[in-house]
Amino acid sequence: MKKWIKILAVLTVIGIAAATYVYVFVYNKAHPDYAQLEPKISLTAENCFTTFRVNEAEANERFIGKMIQLSGHLTQIEHSGDQTIFYFILSEGMFGNEGVRVSMIPDEKLSNITAGHSITLKGFCTGYNQTDVILEHGSVIY
């Protein structure tokens, strides 16, 4: 009888430990710390934009879901709500400017950056919406 109780107690402890592990580390696992992610690819903003325009399917395969490092001439900085968007304007289409838009991780240091200079940054690519290539969770490298 005591043996069965011991087995049952051990199984219960294992069960609780497993459930806790799944709840904390699987169900509630944290989002990636994008600021710490190393870029997988490094290229110019213009090269990135052109790749999407020329062959979207290939560019999707190459860039979407990856942290990429971009360098280029920062043309415009936009503020929308609490978002800061760095914009590399590279073309003009039917709906206005086109290029690479990078939604930046909020950071006090962003207010020191002005448009009209070269910049290197990284961001998580979510795709091309027929006007712009979109990068999110962006941060400045230099």
């Binding site: 509630n28 879901g65 979510t126």
Partner: peptide
Amino acid sequence: KSFQFEKAL
């Protein structure tokens, strides 16, 4: 891919 969820999973 731009949709943001509370839970990463």
